[in-house]
C-alpha cells in the first residue's frame, strides 16, 4: 500500500493530517494561559492524569506520526535528487512559491524545534528547575500539582527562546500553507472547482496556527518590557 511513490504521498498526507489536528488542539490548550494560572494548571493537570495507556498511547501515536512523516520526507527527497541529477543552468519557477519549494528546510527546522520544545517544557531537562515548580492553584483536590503557568512565564521571559519559538511558528505556518492543501491533493480529495476555497482555508489555517502559538511568548515579552499587562504582575516581579 505504501511502497509506491503514491503510497509515500499517502503516508505524508495521513501523518500530516494527524499533525495538523494536533497543532490545533495544542494551540487551543496554550491559549488557556490567558484565562489565568488556575485554568491552565488544571488543564495541564487533567492531561497528565489521563489513564496511562491513553496518555502514552497518544504520545506514541504522535511520535510515530512525526517519525513517519520525517522519514518518508527524507526518503522522497533522496529519490527526487536522484530523479533529477543535473540541474538547469537557470532554475526558475512559474507557479511554485517559497513555501512549497522549501518544505524540506522548514520541516527540518520544525523537527529540531520540536526536539528542543520537548526538552524545554515536557522533559524539562534544559531548565531542570521547571520540574520543581509546583502549586495548589488550579488543583482539583487541593494537592500540589505542577505549575504550568509559572513555567510558561518563566520560559518565555528569555528573549532568545521566545524569538526562536516565534520564528519556528512562522516556519510551521509556511509549512502548513503548502502542507494543508497538499493533504487533499495527495489523497485525491481536491478538484479545481474548490481549489481556491481550499487554498484560502489552508492559508487561513496556517496563519491562525501562527498567531495562536506566537501570541503566548509575545505576550510574555510584551509584559516583561512593560508595554501591556496580560497576566498577574506578581509573576513578573522577580
Amino acid at each position: 500500500m505504501f511502497t509506491s511513490s503514491l503510497g509515500k504521498k499517502y503516508l505524508m498526507a495521513l501523518t500530516g493530517l494527524v499533525l495538523i489536528g494536533f497543532v490545533f488542539v495544542h494551540m487551543a490548550g496554550n491559549l488557556q494561559v490567558f484565562a489565568g494560572q488556575a485554568q491552565i494548571n488544571s488543564y495541564a493537570h487533567s492531561l497528565q492524569s489521563l489513564p496511562w495507556f491513553v496518555l502514552w498511547g497518544s504520545r506514541l501515536f504522535l511520535l510515530a506520526s512525526i517519525m513517519i512523516h520525517a522519514w518518508t520526507a527524507y526518503s522522497l527527497i533522496v529519490e527526487n535528487r536522484k530523479a533529477r541529477p543535473n540541474k538547469n543552468d537557470v532554475e526558475v519557477t512559474k507557479r511554485a512559491g517559497w513555501s512549497s519549494l522549501r518544505m524540506g528546510l522548514t520541516g527540518t527546522i520544525i523537527l529540531a524545534f520540536v526536539v528542543f520544545h520537548l526538552l524545554h517544557f515536557t522533559i524539562r531537562s534544559i531548565y531542570p528547575e521547571y520540574a520543581e515548580m509546583t502549586t495548589t492553584v488550579g488543583s482539583p483536590a487541593g494537592e500540589e500539582i505542577h505549575d504550568a503557568f509559572s513555567m510558561i512565564i518563566a520560559g518565555f521571559k528569555h528573549e532568545f527562546i521566545s524569538v526562536f519559538y516565534v520564528v519556528a511558528m512562522f516556519l510551521l505556518c509556511r509549512h502548513l500553507a503548502h502542507g494543508f492543501s497538499s493533504v487533499f491533493q495527495s489523497l485525491g480529495l481536491r478538484s479545481e472547482a474548490w481549489e481556491k476555497k481550499l487554498n484560502l482555508v489552508s492559508f487561513a489555517y496556517a496563519w491562525l496556527i501562527f498567531a495562536g502559538f506566537s501570541v503566548v511568548p509575545l505576550s510574555v515579552l510584551i509584559q516583561k518590557h512593560g508595554i501591556f499587562q496580560f497576566y498577574d504582575p506578581s509573576f513578573f516581579s522577580s
Binding site: S5, K8, K9, L76, E79, N80, K82, A83, R84, T93, K94, R95, A96, S100, L101, M103, H178, S181, S182, F184, Q185, S186, G188, L189, R190, S191, E192, E195
Partner: peptide, 23 residues
C-alpha cells in the same frame, strides 16, 4: 521523481492539463 504538488508541471504544460488529474 515524486510529485510534491508544486504545480510547476501544469504551469509549464503547453496544453494546460490541470492538477485535478493528479488528484
Amino acid at each position: 521523481g515524486n510529485c510534491r504538488n508544486y504545480g510547476e508541471c501544469s504551469a509549464a504544460c503547453p496544453k494546460d492539463i490541470s492538477l485535478d488529474y493528479i488528484a
